[in-house]
Amino acid sequence: MTDNPAEIVEEVGHPPRRAPSRWRRFAVVSAVIGALFGVPWWTLVVAGDWPTPVTAAATLLFASALVALPVLMFTGHGKHRDLPSAIGDVLLGVIWVLFVWSVLGNITRSLLIGLGVEEPLRSRLIAIAVIVVATVLLGWGHHEAMRIPRVRRVSVRMPRLGPGLDGLRVAIITDTHYGPIDRSRWSAAMVDKVNELDADIVCHVGDIADGTVEMRREQAAPLAAITAATRTYVTGNHEYFSEAQEWLDYLESIGWSSLHNRHVTVERGGDRLVVAGIDDATAAGSGVSGHGQDLAAALDGADDGAPILLLAHQPKQIRHAVAAGVDLQISGHTHGGQIWPFNFLVRLEQPVVHGLSSHGDRTQLYTSRGTGYWGPPFRIFAPSEITLLTLSTA
């Protein structure tokens, strides 16, 4: 027996109440995919009034891609298979860029009308311009995604920092997203670049990989060669798609401190800095036992007078940091938008997309654009970074 009437209703054959929400999600996803493919198809194929064989071939290409994308995503990411995942990610990136620049191309239509350009030349010029711009951006964006990130150097004033810690260097890597494209060599070269910075603390702020430890061990293994005295890691949301606890355990096994709602203390010249970490904001709802952001637990037993550096994957976790009097939170997650103009959509969910910002009377937040990339192997107007923060008292 059950004390829940809803369960009794379902047992006698009534449909689950959650079914309509599944249909709504399906409708929304279908509408989004339809727009992503429909707008470029109309802009590049239909509006140009091309010869019938060209129109037919291009339409077949778009239709095939429209069917292939969800199939590749389901059989790839849904089943943890790398080849369809990689192909699907590339296709997603290509269609997003074509969609964005098709929209922008159509905005110029009125300008061409004003200049007296007639159809079908007007639409053909727009189509050619969209294809050229998209091709250039995708080529450049792939290079940006696959290169070793540049170092971004930022000075952060922390008034409560003791003089013994003045000039402390904190290197940030985040969102490495080791995934279906093997980046073992990239990972090793990235680690070499981090080691060149001679940082006192190196932090990995989550989303280490898309996949299990077993799947991504070879790509993550170079992290063991980080030479900083203090190496700290927290989970991101993507760890909760696979094996969050296994990733925490793996980082511990290669010499990192996994800050699963706990802290470590860094001491120099008689002064102390509390380096705390909390689980990702999605951890509590992931179903992984014992996981969920808990800043009180992370700071339990910490030196009351010491400044606090907090690792929290998502910038929106800043409200907890402000309430707890944290001096500096470092986050990732946003990728700086990764492929323009996605940064505007990110801003709808997160308080900051990238860079240093102030929150409340004491707390500062540094948001990294990320060291790797997620999904589509492109970065357009959102460069990756290895960040070196230099902390100072003045």
Rank of each mutant, 00 (worst) to 15 (best):
G287D: 09
E267L: 04
R18F: 13
C203V: 14
G270K: 01
G355E: 15
S289I: 10
G116K: 02
R122Y: 03
D166F: 10
L72E: 06
E243S: 15
R379W: 04
G116M: 05
R262M: 12
G375L: 03
A224W: 01
H313F: 03
A281S: 09
E349F: 06
G255E: 08
W340T: 12
D300C: 08
V213P: 00
P120Q: 07
W23R: 11
D280V: 08
V97C: 06
A56G: 07
D294A: 04
E267R: 03
I33D: 11
G269D: 07
R379D: 05
P307L: 11
A127S: 12
I148V: 15
L72P: 01
P377S: 06
T43R: 03
Q329S: 03
V326F: 02
V90F: 00
E196M: 04
A229D: 14
S358K: 00
V136N: 03
I126C: 04
T265D: 09
I386S: 03
L251G: 08
E349M: 05
L66F: 12
T43H: 07
W42P: 00
G206Y: 04
Y366G: 08
S85E: 11
I339S: 04
V288H: 12
Q293L: 14
L60R: 10
T43S: 14
P70Y: 12
T232G: 10
D294T: 05
G290H: 00
D327L: 02
E144D: 08
G372E: 11
I8P: 01
G162S: 09
L72R: 01
H313M: 07
A58G: 07
I128V: 13
A6V: 14
T371V: 14
A31Q: 02
A323D: 12
D303S: 11
L61T: 15
P5S: 15
E239N: 08
V205L: 07
A312V: 06
V326I: 10
I330M: 02
L248F: 09
D279S: 04
R150M: 12
Q364W: 10
V103W: 03
P40C: 14
T393I: 11
A127H: 02
G93V: 03
W247Y: 13
E246A: 15
G355N: 09
P307K: 11
D210R: 05
F26I: 06
E10C: 05
I33P: 00
E218W: 00
L60C: 09
D166G: 07
A296M: 04
G290M: 02
D280F: 00
R216P: 05
I107N: 08
R24L: 13
R150L: 13
G370D: 05
L309I: 08
A19E: 14
A229T: 15
R362F: 08
M146W: 02
V46A: 14
I278D: 02
F74W: 13
T108A: 12
L223H: 09
H238W: 11
P377C: 05
D327F: 01
S331T: 05
P15M: 07
A281N: 00
T371S: 12
G164Y: 02
N195D: 10
T52I: 14
T282P: 00
R22M: 14
P51E: 09
A47D: 14
G78Y: 02
L391K: 05
S258D: 06
T43W: 04
G337V: 08
T174M: 09
W256S: 15
H204C: 15
T55E: 11
V275I: 06
D271T: 06
T55F: 13
S155V: 15
P70G: 15
L259R: 03
